[in-house]
Structure formats: structure tokens, C-alpha cells
């Protein structure tokens, strides 16, 4: 197998410009931007809180979609052929905030320090948090965040997470709320580990972001698909999840996304018994700042202009941290165009 060739635009590093760029986050956006920038002769350092580069591609997305080796070899090529320096286990943060995967970092560097020490900074820290859904019982034991679950499974396979940490799902009833790609990936992995999986979605399969194709593959594998239901509360016993209470919904008028809004039907409550519950909704951007150092919007996304520049001159942002949850290709696209802007800016062209 060969690695993803992030430096696909050149054969070798051209003459050095002497400019230094720090990239925060070694996921698809960060690595792709690095590939472009080294092809323009800039020196690139990449900071990431995880123990090795790759981001969600390596630590969360299941192996059957993106092979670990493909990501690893790609990151290694940048290091060996293009002199990219990685600073793993290093969290970049201005202010404080706890995110998923925080157990791995050993050092903290301030974003403002990077801005002082480098000619430009690119933030590509993605979405390493999951928002609370805000229903009674949503903090019971046995409720797992999809990131945590997928990360434990993949991390155990990679040797970063002790095997004991992965719950033994064989024969267990796992409920998954949501029908995006994260929900589908969580369902695939739980199904593979022997769980009885049920997916609960508030609209119908026609509106499901992951699409009928993926969902029907899961159904062929024995995953149950439950549509037009919305969670009302989680029922616990001795502090642990025992069941979920759901309300049936019907589709009403279209909302701002053009999809018909689900309307809960009063008095339609029913319960489904569960051992684990995964809220695969609401992945939240995790910018390396908490406070007013750079501007973020209501949903936590970093605000950027058409050049991908943030509210601080010389700091750029790309990928999910600026867009919210999207697909790998969107992160790659953003990484490329942000890198084009950084290169131009460093050359004084805009």
C-alpha cells in the first residue's frame, strides 16, 4: 500500500522561501494544507494533541473505510521527504476547555505564541466535542459519545487505548440516535462487535444524511432502523441506562435546511430497553481558543473571510473547525484553498 500523497502537486521540495508555517491539527485539512505549502517551499510544523498524525481519519473513521496504513504512510512521507516536523501530544489552546481525546496531550502551547513564532498559522482542529442533547437522563452511565466509542474501538486496535476500556458489546442492546455518517459508522462498528443495534431517527430514511444506501446495508446486517421517533428521556436504574423513552413524530413544514421538520406527537410515548445509548448528533467544532482571541460564531465555528483568514491577521482556519461537521473531501478542499491563500499572503500578494 502507498500513502495518501498530500504533496501531490510537486515531486520534491523546491527552493526554500524561509517562511515558517504552523499548522494546528493533523487531520485531512491540516495535512493537505501542509502538502501544498511544502510544494511552495515553506517550512511547516504541525501540532496535534493526539499521539500521531491523521486526525479523525486515523482515530475515528473505521478501518474498512480508510485504511490506517494509507494515512500513516502519507503523514510519514511529508516528514521524510518534505521535512515537515510533527509535534504530537501537544494541545494548542488560548484559554481553557476540555475536549475528547484530551487524555493524550502532554504539553500545551498558546495559540498567540505560535502566531509570534511563525510567519503564519493555520487552524484545522476539527470537531472533537459532542454537544449534550439536553433531555432528562442524558448523563447516565452507559451513554456514550460516538467519538468516544469509535475512538476507543479504533484506539484499542491501534494500541493506544487499553482493550478493557472498550465495552464488551457482544449480545448487548445498543441504541443510536441520529442518521448521519457518524451514526452509521458507530452502528457498523457495534454490529461488527456483536451488539444488537437499533438506530432511532426523527425523520424518515429519505431525509437521513447518511442516505438509504448506507442504512440499508446496515439493515441487511441485522441493524434495526426506527424512523419518525425522537428521544424524550433516558430511563436509568442505579445510575445506568435501562431504557429510552421515545415519542413518535410526523413530518411538518420544511425548516431552513429544506427538510421537513419533525413534529412530536403528544401522548405517543413508548419505551425501548437498552444497555448502551449513543447520541450521534451535534458534533461541535473545537477551536484552539476559548474566549475572545479569535472570533467564533454561535455554533462554535471559527469565522473566516474569503481568504480563510480569521479575525487575527496571519491566522487562518480550514476544515470542520470552520464549517462544522462535513465529509473528508470538504476538509481537503478547504485545506487546499486555505494553503493557496496562506502562500499568497506570505508572498505579499493579498
Amino acid at each position: 500500500m502507498r500513502g495518501i500523497k498530500f504533496s501531490f502537486l510537486c515531486k520534491e521540495k523546491p527552493q526554500r522561501t524561509g517562511k515558517r508555517v504552523a499548522i494546528v491539527g493533523a487531520g485531512p485539512a491540516g495535512l493537505t494544507a501542509a502538502g501544498y505549502l511544502v510544494c511552495k517551499g515553506h517550512d511547516v510544523d504541525i501540532y496535534d494533541k493526539m499521539p500521531e498524525p491523521g486526525g479523525l481519519m486515523l482515530f475515528v473513521i473505521p478501518e474498512f473505510r480508510i485504511p490506517v496504513e494509507r494515512v500513516r504512510l502519507g503523514a510519514k512521507e511529508l516528514e521524510e521527504e518534505f521535512e515537515v516536523t510533527y509535534y504530537p501530544k501537544t494541545k494548542v489552546m488560548e484559554g481553557e476547555r476540555e475536549d475528547e481525546g484530551d487524555e493524550f496531550y502532554e504539553r500545551v502551547v498558546k495559540l498567540s505564541e505560535l502566531r509570534e513564532n511563525y510567519d503564519a498559522v493555520l487552524i484545522a482542529t476539527g470537531i472533537w466535542n459532542v454537544g449534550r442533547i439536553g433531555i432528562p437522563g442524558d448523563d447516565l452511565e452507559g451513554i456514550l459519545s460516538p467519538l468516544e466509542l469509535l475512538f476507543w474501538i479504533k484506539g484499542a486496535e491501534l494500541g493506544y487505548v487499553p482493550k478493557e476500556k472498550v465495552p464488551d458489546l457482544r449480545g448487548k442492546r445498543v441504541g443510536i440516535i441520529g442518521a448521519g455518517l457518524t451514526a452509521v459508522d458507530a452502528a457498523f462498528e457495534c454490529n461488527r462487535l456483536g451488539a444488537e443495534v437499533e438506530i432511532f431517527y426523527r425523520r424518515t430514511i429519505r431525509e437521513a444524511p447518511a442516505g438509504a444506501y448506507e442504512i440499508n446495508i446496515l439493515r441487511n446486517r441485522g441493524v434495526k432502523w426506527f424512523e419518525l421517533v425522537t428521544p424524550k428521556r433516558v430511563i436509568g436504574e442505579n445510575g445506568r441506562v435501562k431504557a429510552i423513552e421515545l415519542l413518535r413524530t410526523r413530518l411538518g413544514e420544511p425548516d431552513e435546511t429544506g427538510r421537513r421538520r419533525p413534529v412530536p406527537i403528544e401522548g405517543s410515548e413508548f419505551q425501548v430497553e437498552l444497555d448502551y445509548l449513543v447520541f450521534a448528533i451535534g458534533m461541535v467544532p473545537t477551536p484552539p481558543v476559548n474566549g475572545s482571541y479569535i472570533a467564533t460564531d454561535r455554533r462554535g465555528r471559527i469565522v473566516v473571510d474569503s481568504r480563510h483568514m480569521t479575525s487575527v491577521e496571519g491566522i487562518f482556519a480550514a476544515g470542520d473547525v470552520a464549517n462544522g461537521p462535513t465529509k473528508v473531501s470538504r476538509a481537503i478542499k478547504d485545506g487546499l484553498y486555505a494553503a493557496v491563500s496562506i502562500d499568497r499572503w506570505l508572498r505579499g500578494e493579498s
Partner: peptide
């Protein structure tokens, strides 16, 4: 012509 391969093949995450 520059000795580079098709970009799609090089960048596909799934090979």
C-alpha cells in the same frame, strides 16, 4: 509530463 501521477489516485483516502 512533469513526472507526476494522476492527482485523484494519489489523494484518494481509501486507495
Amino acid at each position: 509530463e512533469e513526472g507526476l501521477e494522476p492527482a485523484c489516485a494519489l489523494m484518494c483516502p481509501a486507495e
